[in-house]
Amino acid sequence: MTKILYSLKTMHLARLLLIFLTTLILISVLAPSSFLTGASFRSMAVQMPELGFLSIAAAMVLISGGIDLSVTGVAIMSGVLAALIMKMLGGTEASSTVIIPAILAALGIGCLCGLLNAVLVAGLGLAPMLATLGTSNLFTGLGIVLSKGSAVTGFPSAFQMIGNGSFLGIPIPMILFLLAISGMAFILRRTKYGFRLFMYGTNPTASFFSGVNNTRVLFITYTISGIVSSIAGILMVSRINTAKADYGSSYGLQALLIAVLGGIDPSGGSGRAIGLLLSIVTLQIISSGFNLMHINAFIKDLTWGLLLLLIMVWNYARQRKE
């Protein structure tokens, strides 16, 4: 049985790897001249991290057996806040040091948003779906109010470097994302918090009776989710040099789907960072490949949806067979 469960887990990873390789080869064959170029990989490495950070945020909460629908709301509000602070402190002309308070404020608000979710879920006992649906609207709305509904633009060049610069030829967002996903892997596999998170996600009642401080686990989880979401917001604003309250609002559900495709069990208690990484890389390849082949963006969405359904039906069929 363990072997089955283990092979199931690894099966899922193996399947993901298979899908990943298939798409990679398929796109390389179909559009070799444009896909297998440094430029196309660079553009993927720039686009992927934003959604990647949101997926990490969503995945952590999914492992706890909850759901965080407010990840984009947090990203938007943090991005708008950072943008406004930089604007206030001088905009394009300001010295590069103003990005420090801006980033700290963005991370701080992300942390506060996470704490608010935690208070609603762990403190008041609201259903995570309802609590975060509410706060999602609240955060997005605050973003709109703060920015007065218009685009905020014009930041010091040092800030634009975060989203557009590169180090040793690797885009900085990609480096940050790889660091974050490694951090997630470390948290899940090596920290006692990670262990408790898995136990809580599997059976909250049993973890309560086992002496796990459930409230604490939830507070840490939602706070991590908030902070990680705000990093996505900073990256987004930096890359396009604009903060806009309605930008990237469709990312939230995509982030959830990426997490599920990556093998994070939506009922809680299991999931691995490596699965998440494979899942997001695969979807980015499909997305970029379609762009390069000039395939309609709507077809792209349709393909994503089909792929996700396929994977889930596949998983389900396997589990039933066992």
């Binding site: 469960l5 006692k192 009642t205 009776f209």
Partner: peptide, 28 residues
């Protein structure tokens, strides 16, 4: 309902309450 984490390995079930004893303060 209150005692076991059915899908989790016996290892996790046995060590969940004593996890503080193993490894360092935060890591194991």
């Amino acid at each position: 309902a209150e005692g076991l984490f059915l899908v989790k390995p016996l290892t996790d079930n046995i060590t969940v309450s004593s996890i503080d004893k193993y490894g360092s303060r935060r890591l194991y």
